[in-house]
Amino acid sequence: MANKTDITDIDWTIPRKNLNPKTKQPYKRGRNWRIVAYPESLPEDWKDIIRQEPVAISPLHDKDVNPDGEIKKAHYHLVLNYKGNKSFEQIDEIARALRAPVPQRASSLTGSVRYLTHMDNPEKYQYDTADIQVFGGFDLENCLALSTGDKRQALRDMIAFISDNDIVHLKDFTDYCLSDEAPAGWFELLTERNTLFIKEYIKSTWQKIQSSNADKERQK
């Protein structure tokens, strides 16, 4: 089996291709970006390199595990939040200076920041929020909290998900909120103050399905 490319073999001066691995399309300009960095690759002065950038740095993720129980390679998550849009090329220049993999646009700033310690992923190791480092005026406290507007929109999305997927058991929805597929903040919204409402909504969804099935039986 061929060996993986050694870190010393990479020419970090060469710009990387702008390509979203999920959509296979170029990233558009944006304010929020994510970078994953590995300790063995980072230059000694890496924090000085990004000190002027509006960035939040996770604690070292050295206790993450794969589905098979194997410990993942230790890494840092970085979230950058600018007042104006930045291009992929601009962020890639920073990532290459850190000898890090290709950066990615962050679809949710709050979700990305909360992921720095797995706040919304209780099934994963919980890192200490106090160990998050920030530079460049990054507003960590504001990013960690879901805004009122975010909560309302998330609740709308949760209701739509329940309806679209005919969820009829609170357990099934809770399990989804605990999964990696669930949007950031759903588990928090479910458990903090909306459990009774969502439970009743799921119950009414079940009742509607039962009523519809009964009507169909009568029409036969």
Score class of each variant (00 low, 15 high):
A2E: 06
M158A: 13
L19C: 11
L42E: 02
R31L: 07
K4P: 01
K28Y: 06
N32V: 11
H118I: 11
L80P: 00
E192R: 15
D139F: 09
K17P: 00
D164W: 01
T117W: 00
D166P: 01
E181C: 09
R31H: 08
Y27T: 03
E123K: 13
G84W: 09
T195I: 06
T174V: 05
S212K: 13
D180R: 11
S107T: 12
Q104V: 14
S58K: 05
K22N: 13
V36L: 09
Q153F: 11
G69W: 12
R34I: 15
K72V: 06
W12R: 09
T8V: 10
L190K: 00
W46E: 02
K199C: 02
D128A: 09
S41I: 01
N213A: 15
K171W: 09
L80C: 07
G149L: 12
L19M: 13
K203M: 08
R114C: 08
A154I: 08
I35V: 14
L109S: 03
K151F: 01
E53M: 11
L146M: 15
G30L: 04
A56S: 08
D11V: 02
E93S: 14
A160M: 12
Q133A: 08
Y125A: 06
F173Q: 01
A145S: 10
Q90S: 15
Q126P: 02
Y27K: 08
P183A: 13
E188Y: 13
G149V: 04
I159H: 04
F173L: 13
Y176A: 07
L140A: 04
F135N: 04
L98T: 03
P59E: 04
D180V: 13
I71W: 03
L178R: 15
L155P: 00
P43H: 10
F138A: 09
D62I: 01
C143P: 00
D150L: 11
R29Q: 14
K73Q: 14
G30M: 10
A145M: 10
K86Y: 13
L196W: 04
L155V: 03
D120Q: 09
Y115F: 12
D215I: 07
Y38K: 04
K72P: 05
D48F: 03
S147Y: 12
A37D: 00
V65E: 15
